[in-house]
Design a protein around this nucleic acid. Sequence first.
DNA 1: TTAAGTGCAAATATTTTGCAATGAG
DNA 2: CTCATTGCAAAATATTTGCACTTAA
Lengths: 152, 152
Amino acid sequence: MIANNMIIYKKLNQQGYRITKAREKILEILSKSPKHLSVDDIYLAIKSRGENVGTATIYRAVDSLAKTGIIRKLSLLNGRASFEIINKEISTHHHHLVCRNCQTVIDYSDFIKEEIFLMKKLEKIVSKIHQFKIEDHQLSFTGLCKSCKGGD
Amino acid sequence: MIANNMIIYKKLNQQGYRITKAREKILEILSKSPKHLSVDDIYLAIKSRGENVGTATIYRAVDSLAKTGIIRKLSLLNGRASFEIINKEISTHHHHLVCRNCQTVIDYSDFIKEEIFLMKKLEKIVSKIHQFKIEDHQLSFTGLCKSCKGGD
DNA sequence: TTAAGTGCAAATATTTTGCAATGAG
DNA sequence: CTCATTGCAAAATATTTGCACTTAA
């Protein structure tokens, strides 16, 4: 059982999911990771402990964990999905700046107060208008990075 | 040649890309579509006109078009990339709402004045702080859609 | 002319599925 | 006990690459 997480177990039970070794291992890996992991990352992390969980199982497990809102599924631009625990305390939320020329992705989380305030306001407006329960957001700006825009 | 778009041609030329039949067809398809299309969608749309462009070519073409900032690459949660024209005049810019339960993606472009204003303000702040030339943004909110959150 | 671009088929990911065996409740 | 879950291998998808041929500039 992973540290102090009756809440997670409850969430699973409530939706008819069982607490299994595979799910526990995956949650443990994800909760210890500072960043989102792909299915393959999870597979390898488990392997490196001398244990084994098939990738098909991992795909099915992350799917159920995401459905219950325990983890978050991300789709970045690299063609594979990745996952992270939803836990405002632990995960550092960030936004992205993607350079269309050199493809560099800058993660930034040094939001200034004003940016955070604006995002919150936006969430509130959008959730109301579209009757959608917003739990999370992903924001990326595309353009030219400092060096690609010249005038470096 | 697709309608009134010397600007696009210029952008391609400036970066050493050529104006080819395949790129023209893809741009025409994308500019006529009200929503983002996957590579396969584009492939089929071209096919349905009795023409043909191989998928490998489409992958390479959208890649170059995205690099030049003519189209935008999106990675939603459905496991495949999709593309849309970046052109405030033609395509209506939109944001996304992605349901973590049923995976439905809702595109919305009925921004209220306040949302537009907030996004512009955000862009200004972020571009200044990170010395990044922002040309475009992608925003998606994740959570539960009207029917999945219950209380429908 | 000549480098960029294309088509096709083959190679690589990535994700899903079928099914018999296992295990949680 | 019984149904959700797993493991494995096979199937289905999605994307990339090699290479000879074609074409835009």
